[in-house]
Design a protein around this nucleic acid. Structure first.
Lengths: 330, 330
DNA sequence: TTGTAGGCGTTATCAC
DNA sequence: GTGATAACGCCTACAA
């Protein structure tokens, strides 16, 4: 490995002069500087990240932690994060799994964005307590070194539920996310609030998992119990897709027998037939804002928690309840 | 930050004793050792990754470089990589974008897996020349420090094309990937080979981009030129999905007017109506193998290039050509 | 069994 | 403007 020491030797100067030249300090003559730069290029010199990080006590790398690498929500979110990070001179790395947690306490990264419910809040608080900077996207956590950028789950679930009610639906299945998911809990709470306040509305929770398989299972149960048209609120789009596809094998029709709305507005919903009604928000903005907040708290700036606003996307997957007595197909 | 120096002071021993104890060396008494460990825990000691990396000249981190964070192929592939990495005591980080390239030459990571055609081969060879270890998944590149783990594109495209021919199709549109994509070029070459060898077969290339939008555009052209049923080979599933969805808005029917086959067997194809015919391979195995090869060449082991085998998945998106004169709908 | 000391590659504070 | 020199936190001969 070629180090500044090698360059110094070859250039006949000291290592400090080399360091200055390499870092573009104005303290060194243009002449010496260009000579050093030339030699550095000639020797294929590349600075050593570990040494720099050790000395400067910062790596200029930010990490984002995901539950897993699958999931349709992540793509744009990560792109949003990357954009902001890069523009601020940081690199972004994506990590998953318990093993990678060490990156934060061992100071391989300067800060972390968390979207991983397997990362316990105790662990996060422990790190925050040791002065590591963290932004959480998937929980509420109060600490001077932690900032929250959360989806407005309550507004989203309220919009979705009210939309179903407005269309005249009286029986609503709600397919939830996995145990312990903050998003699921929050959305569920809002549904309950709205539905309980309405007259004559019955709502039934089906335990889901935020994956396609959960939607499929829910479809089975719903069709089994079917007596008349029902509304279904899948707490994310992936389950809605699973549900749709299970139902596509039957005579039941989405938007007629089963009125369906999702949450997330993932790209695929644009392509579904009929178009899935869902709750939209900017994933790119979510990621960008998370990175911004992280960089701010790292620089010592005091910032408030942020919220990502949501909107309703209507779609033919939810029809008006004009066909109360539509019979069970076949 | 608490370092081994602090522990040493508190324990009344030297820093080397602390280091030995922390690394489980048998050279230190159980008594001293447990005392040191207790103090380390008490002080919330966490080793500093940069210092360890600098000294040991390895980070135990492997990096994978992707063109972008979107893309349905990546999830399982990354999981496959992560599994192998972790089991071998390595961490995996996912990077994207030109800025992050520095991770390799600056020795932040011990090795890299490349699935990013924006990473030039010259750059990769340069790094390989400086003794960095690399596994490429998206090109052919010969160097002692580079290993290839490539899809058997030729076999896949041949299987797909032959399947269309067996079903009696005589006119085949091929929707390609973006300019410069190795996978696209290889697949295209195989199609040409098979189709040209067959009698009476006409094939037409449509320039695509491996994204949904490319499939949509291809759909427009195909419908415009339509006179009788045609076959279409989209060189990846994402374009096939775009094509399907564009066609779903019309009276044309997949599997009747347009016989469609894709490539990749991404999860979503399972849910399409009709089921998309495609080429399958294990993404998880691809990732796992890539990691294994990387770790092997890093340990100085000499390994051959590897190939990921593919199979044909039939689906109702390709019907038999019994309806040669099916008229143009509406 | 434990301590001393040198060095990994870099930055940064001093002198000169 | 340039050069010694001392860290940064850790590992590891070698010495005691």
């Amino acid at each position: 490995m070629v180090s500044i020491k090698d360059i110094a030797k070859k250039a006949g100067v000291s290592i400090s002069t080399v360091s200055y030249a390499l870092n573009g300090s104005s303290k060194v003559t243009d002449e010496t500087s260009s000579k050093i730069l030339a030699i550095a290029r000639e020797l294929n010199y590349v600075p050593n990240a570990a040494a720099r990080t050790l000395k400067k006590r910062e790596s200029r790398i930010l990490g984002v932690f995901l539950t897993d690498f699958k999931g349709d929500v992540y793509g744009e979110l990560l792109d949003g994060m990357k954009e902001v990070c890069n523009s601020q001179g940081y690199d972004l790395i994506v990590c998953s799994g318990k093993q990678s947690h060490r990156m934060l306490p061992e100071r391989m990264i300067d800060g972390a964005v968390i979207l991983d419910h397997t990362f316990s809040s105790e662990e996060l608080l422990k790190y925050a307590e040791r002065n590591h900077k963290i932004v959480v996207l998937d929980r509420e956590l109060e600490h001077p070194n932690i900032n929250q950028v959360l989806l407005d789950n309550k507004a989203g679930a309220t919009l979705a539920t009210e939309f179903l009610l407005e269309q005249g639906h009286k029986k609503i299945y709600v397919v939830s996310g996995p145990e312990g998911s903050y998003d699921s809990t929050q959305r569920m709470k809002a549904v309950k609030m709205v539905a309980d306040r309405a007259e004559d509305v019955e709502w039934i929770e089906i335990q889901g998992d935020f994956k396609k398989s959960g939607g499929e299972k829910a479809a089975e149960q719903i069709m089994q119990e079917y007596t008349e048209p029902v509304a279904v609120f899948c707490l994310n789009d992936e389950m809605a897709i699973g549900l749709c596809n299970r139902i596509a094998d039957t005579e039941f029709k989405i938007g007629e027998h089963v009125h369906l709305i999702g949450f997330d507005n993932i790209e695929l919903t644009r392509y579904m037939q009929p178009r899935l009604a869902t709750i939209d928000y900017s994933k790119r903005k979510w990621g960008a804002l998370a990175s911004e907040q992280l960089i701010k708290i790292m620089s010592g700036e005091k910032v408030d928690h942020e919220r990502i606003y949501v909107t309703l996307v209507k779609g033919d997957s939810v029809g008006t309840e004009t066909t109360r007595s539509l019979p069970r197909p076949n």
